[in-house]
Amino acid sequence: MADRGFSVSRLPGFTPTAMLVFVALYLPILMLVAFSFNAGKSVASFEGFTLQWFVKAWANDHVKDATLRSLVIAVVAASVATVVATAAALGTTRRKAFKGQTFIYVVINQPLMVPEIVTAVALLIFFAQIKVLTGYQGLGYLVTAHAAFCIPFAYLPIRARLEGMDLTLESAAADLYASPWQTFRFVTLPLLLPGMIAGFMLAFVTSLDDVVITLFVKSAGQDTLPTYMLGQIRRQITTEVYAISTVLLGLTVVLLTAFFLLTRKKD
């Protein structure tokens, strides 16, 4: 593309600028990872290698409790979001273009655009009403909230996959005596699966990571991993939190790698 013509990479200062951005993005993370192995408690100096913070975090019942809750919420919310997003993606791609299509896209992707704090406060009020009415205090509020804001993250890769699919394949299935349900089950769904897995993983990571909405919606004793860590850091800086962050980072890298492998173009 950039043959002889304009190329950003030949502008003066391109390399230093790029380096600066990478340093700003990744140096803090690298430091976090390094200090999670620090034998001392200070963040000022590295006093030798240790795995004790990982061991301590693992042994901490609060951490275990929060981790389990986070995983339960993330798995359920991501599953719900994936199913809803698949239905939404089918509804917006497998039909003739209709009036207000763009509006529907905006509605589905609303959580990406509305400031999270607004959603958080709105949910706080809304769920408070329901709590008063039903008396239910469980994890359902968090799961519902997470599922809702995870939908666009699941929707985008699923829709992209559907749009990239050759519609003739579905015609061919119908031509070969497949009912609409069989066409979906034996042709659309298998071809859509990588997109759905990618959508699930994005939704999962998004849920796992959420602080703002969780803080507003959770009841007492419903700490997720991020809100627990926030609470810890407010009291005193604990190296345990670094260790947990490092593990989360590792998990994210694994998931995103899998996401990349699943969504890249075949051949």
Binding site: T168, L169, S171, A172, A173, A174, D175, Y177, V187, L191
Partner: peptide
């Protein structure tokens, strides 16, 4: 009748073979 209920089959220009 919808296509799946017609005893008629098509060879598509793009072949439309199921890749999976």
């Amino acid at each position: 009748l919808p296509p799946n209920r017609r005893p008629v089959n098509t060879v598509f220009q793009s072949y439309a073979l199921f890749p999976h």
